[in-house]
């Protein structure tokens, strides 16, 4: 089975090239280049401070940024080699929760979740509404779904942003700093929603989480936790 996400020898932009090294036993290797394979159904957290370059991983995986070297394979594709319209169509196969949520401020939380489905699918209106209702209920947004982001609290905004990322029920979810400012309980809830339930192989979806740290409660809930500190990459447990 193809690994949903592969970083091969990619220099992380903010990390000084020579200082990136791997610890023994990790599949993160060598000589200033970042390599990581996220296997199907796996939940991997890659954490590091702002100089580590981990905040570039989401953009690299989605082809929003061009890697300075190496290659990035997302669902088996090098996204940056696709045409502009093919890139856009491809990204609908991946759930993306950007840092800071990126919710459209002039839309309600429900409309934010609805937008990718209305823009990028040929589903009937009734089916879209059904799917949005399920996501809203699943992420416990029913009470606040008709508020705009500025009227909602940080937790509800984060839930809505995750709901938007899950709109197409993607097989791969990439979440940038999804737990920032959240309680451990909410973080665990968000992670479970991103995983989409359990299968015999692991989570129903493959999940990559990036950010400065991982709440304590979640350390036991991810399959691998990888830390990048001051350009030095290490694999956790």
């Amino acid at each position: 089975m193809t690994a949903p996400l592969v970083f091969e020898e990619v220099p992380l932009a903010k990390a000084p090239r020579a200082s990136v090294a791997a610890l023994p036993g990790a599949d993160l290797t060598l000589a200033g280049r970042f390599s990581l394979t996220v296997r199907p159904h796996e939940t991997v957290a890659v954490t590091g401070d702002e100089l580590s370059g981990v905040d570039f991983l989401g953009g690299l995986a989605l082809g929003l940024e061009e890697p300075a070297g190496g290659r990035v394979l997302t669902l088996g594709e090098q996204v940056t080699l696709l045409s502009r319209s093919a890139q856009l169509a491809f990204r609908r196969r991946v759930g993306y929760l950007p840092a800071g949520e990126g919710l459209l401020q002039n839309l309600t939380l429900r409309d934010n979740i609805r937008l990718p489905l209305r823009f990028g699918s040929d589903f009937r209106q009734k089916d879209i509404e059904g799917r949005v209702d399920v996501i809203v209920a699943q992420l416990r947004l029913t009470r606040v779904a008709d508020l705009r982001p500025a009227e909602a609290n940080a937790e509800d905004r984060r839930r809505a942003a995750l709901g938007r990322a899950l709109a197409f029920d993607p097989e791969l979810v990439i979440a940038e700093d999804p737990f920032e400012g959240m309680t451990e309980r909410t973080s665990a809830e968000l992670l479970e929603a991103a995983r989409g339930g359990e299968t015999a192989e692991g989570g129903r979806r493959t999940v990559l989480v990036t950010g400065p740290g991982l709440p304590g409660l979640l350390r036991t809930r991810v399959d691998r936790a990888v830390r990048v500190v001051r350009g030095v990459v290490e694999e956790g447990r």
Binding site: G58, G59, L62, L64, R84, S85, L88, A89, F90, R91, R92, Y96, P98, A99, G100, E101, G102, L103, L104, Q105, L115, P116, F119, G120, A161, R164, A165, A167
Partner: peptide, 22 residues
């Protein structure tokens, strides 16, 4: 400009919506 600064444009691209279109 606000859309850009708030990360909304990047989010649009990330979910497969061309900012030119929307």
């Amino acid at each position: 400009a606000t859309n850009t600064v708030m990360g909304e444009v990047r989010a649009l691209k990330g979910m497969g919506i061309d900012p030119y279109h929307y």
